[in-house]
Design a protein around this nucleic acid. Structure first.
Length: 481
RNA sequence: GGCGACGUAGCCAAGUGGUAAGGCAGAGCUCUGCAAAAGCUCGAUUCCCCAGUUCGAAUCUGGGCGUCGCCUCCA
């Protein structure tokens, strides 16, 4: 039993085998920080985070490279509009993205190459393409000549004439063919630029990834290249077109792995449509672990839509896992990980093209049966459950031990006092003490079977947003959301 | 217009030839003075529609209908 992954290159589910024993090199196209990151980006990087964690679990030494395209037309245009420095814009958005990734427990890439740090290698690569006459210098830049690469369109499973029939390709007088794309764009006055043999300018989109994979990972075929499904064409197709003619032994990457896009109101979330809320703000409103859980529930390749309701449902679902973990927690003790059906079933699910929804189902099945676990195997169960959660990127936190509480409103005491109309006074007491005081009074009333007083006290608290729960170990309270 | 994906209970979603995982919501029960919380139990004779292949199909084939993506910057 081993990992099978869908390979966009061959359009098939294939058994994953690393090119070098025990080692996996993954390159994932990162962000172009010309706008605020959104939850669709999070879905993609969350998936690759789980893939990476799983590869490591399988015993591979996984090296994860995720680039930053820190130069592009949009950020330059934005700088012109706002008067800001273009790089301040880029680094601002990127910092915000990184912070969101941290909150989502997405692990840091092992290598994080910035496009602007690889200008030398980019220029060198363009030079090689020109030498081989696969590229040409035009009036406003250097272009890639698509007609020179016979496999062009292979990744996207598209033929050149089909692409040309597309109604939305703009004719550009600087290109020989509408499908040709820019490798280097000559700078207009005021635009950021770097020197090159053909004139000062900046790299086109696509070329940075070709240059960086070649430099950072190596000139030969590497194991996996990933990104969102919307990158298949033209971005990844163009990367292949740039890289493979210069390689002695193509293909550029063995596996091409693409994650499905996220829909918002039935339309793909995208920078140009602006149909999204910044990721950082969404994470203020929703538990990042619940966000991860929600994405784990859906196959990574499926087009998926998301709603506030689904996010809330995921939070409740996460609570179940937390509760199971909490029950096991007192039985923790150091020791080796002992495998049982839980891990076996999770592996079986993940081996099937990273079926995280199936893996999650196993976690829930386990959680539902936690009470039945015999005392002497609880420590093992605890370690295995924790390990599985961690493997999916949902590391148990110390906060899981606490029942969730929300802050009391600022005027809580005043409202409470009013609700009780002087029945009990607690001048100077903290809100917490006041609640405890009422609970004590109520329990006294309950002992005396004074139900009307008991209920009156409970209702007063309820109107102030505090719910009481009578457990067998006494009364606890929670603050309503 | 071309290429592709998807359509499973109220909602989200797994399952890719052997008789429908899981989550949310809902219902019932237990517990409780009553609640809340918690625990237990239950849910599609059926997988968009229509034909076909097969002993057997949600799963394969053909045809419809619908939704979405890509063909343009995008994870």
């Amino acid at each position: 039993m081993s990992l099978k992954l869908y390979n966009t290159r061959t359009r098939q589910l294939e058994e994953f085998r690393p090119l070098r024993e025990g080692r996996v090199d993954i390159y994932v196209c990162g962000l172009t920080p010309s706008a605020e990151a959104h939850i669709g980006h999070a879905r993609s990087f969350l998936f690759f985070d789980v893939l990476r964690r799983y590869l490591r679990h399988l015993g591979f030494d996984a090296r994860y490279v995720q680039n930053v395209t820190d130069i592009d037309d949009r950020s330059i245009a934005r700088a012109r509009e706002t008067g800001e420095d273009w790089y301040d814009i880029v680094s601002g958005y990127y910092a915000s993205f990184k912070e969101s990734m941290r909150r989502l427990d997405v692990e840091e890439p092992d290598v994080e190459p910035y496009a602007t740090k690889f200008i030398v290698q980019i220029v060198e690569m363009i030079g090689e393409l020109l030498e081989r006459e696969i590229a040409y210098v035009s009036e406003d830049g250097v272009y890639y000549d698509v007609s020179k690469f016979s496999r062009y369109g292979a990744l996207a499973h598209r033929k050149i004439d089909e692409l040309e029939a597309g109604a939305r390709i703009e004719v550009d007088e600087h290109k020989d063919d509408p499908l040709d794309f820019a490798l280097w764009k000559f700078a207009k006055p005021g635009e950021p630029s770097w020197e090159s043999p053909w004139g000062a300018g900046r790299p086109g989109w696509h070329i940075e990834c070709s240059a960086m994979t070649r430099t950072v990972i190596g000139p030969d075929t590497f194991d996996m290249h990933g990104g969102g499904a919307d990158l298949v064409f033209p971005h990844h197709e163009n990367e292949i077109a740039q890289s493979e003619p210069l390689m002695p032994h193509p293909p550029m990457a063995n596996f091409w792995v693409h994650g499905g896009v996220l829909l918002s109101d039935g339309k793909k979330m995208s920078k140009s449509l602006g149909n999204f809320e910044p990721l950082s703000e969404l994470l203020d409103r929703h538990d990042p672990q619940a966000v991860r859980l929600l994405f784990l529930q859906t196959g990574y390749r499926k087009v998926m839509s998301m709603s506030e309701e689904s996010l809330d449902a995921a939070a409740v679902s996460l609570e179940r896992l937390k509760a199971a973990w909490r029950k096991l927690h007192p039985h923790s003790s150091a020791g080796a990980l002992k495998r049982s059906v839980l891990l076996e079933q999770i592996e079986a699910a993940l081996n099937n093209d990273m079926n995280t929804a199936g893996a999650l189902a196993e976690l829930h099945r386990f959680a539902a049966n936690v009470d039945a676990i015999p005392e002497d195997s609880r420590s093992d169960a605890f370690r295995e459950f924790s390990y599985a959660l961690e493997m999916l990127g949902m590391p148990p936190r110390s906060s899981w031990l606490e029942v969730p509480k929300v802050e009391l409103a600022a005027d809580f005491l005043e409202r409470l006092q009013r609700e009780l109309s002087g029945e009990i006074s607690f001048n100077g007491a903290s809100p917490h003490d006041a609640i405890e005081r009422i609970i004590a009074e109520r329990n006294l009333a309950r002992m005396q079977k004074d139900w009307s007083r008991s209920d009156r006290l409970r209702d007063a608290l309820a109107r102030c947003g505090v719910t009481l729960k009578d457990g067998k170990d006494g009364t606890t309270w929670t603050v309503d959301a």
